[in-house]
Write a protein that binds this DNA or RNA. Sequence first.
DNA 1: TTATAGATTGCCT
DNA 2: GGCAATCTATAAT
Length: 210
Amino acid sequence: MAELQLRNARPLVRAFYERDPRRVAREILGKVLLRREGRKLRAGRIVEVEAYLGVNDPAAHAAAGRTPRNRVLFGPPGHAYVYFIYGNHYCLNVSCMPEGKAGCVLIRALEPLAGMEQMRGARGLKGKRREADPRLLTSGPGRLSEAFDITRSRDNGKDLTAAESDLVIVDGDGAGGRVRVTTRIGISKAAHEKLRYVLAGNAFVSGKKI
DNA sequence: TTATAGATTGCCT
DNA sequence: GGCAATCTATAAT
């Protein structure tokens, strides 16, 4: 998809997110995350996500009930929930379900479409041997957050459906591949639940090739 | 007040 | 394959 077309695309509407995270997770594959800063544009196709349910999902941050940290999850749908993990990394989620009910989708991997140079800079890969591997840009929740300069102070609570927002999700060329459902990664609670959605065979899916 | 686990990644052996 | 980095919420003193 042409860069100009992406830049002018309208964000997905709030109703898209106002549903069960499992539905949203499946349908958000193939959509495009945009960071718009003046003339600069970073864009990545969503190829891997995980659904986190409400207070009944032991692995979800919402399981402990509403706290200052996770309040976005209980707010209106279509907002960014950004948290810091392992003392090193930010992760980007989108809130789902109607206001008052928790639920979200964790964005785990992107296929870079535009602004790769900026992403390399943000990731600190310039001049390194590893610079050549495009998978290191956005393949993994911590990596894509760093590539898009996503931080808690900057983006937590941001409305991803607002036309004027610098961080939005827009329509893409479609899923462009079959959706595969697997167990979630990196969790210990409710680890058997199949709530991870990937575009089968896409090279930018994190972890081992499936 | 202190301890610990966690929706991860990069560098080491 | 192992482990350090080092923020946050929650559990344990």
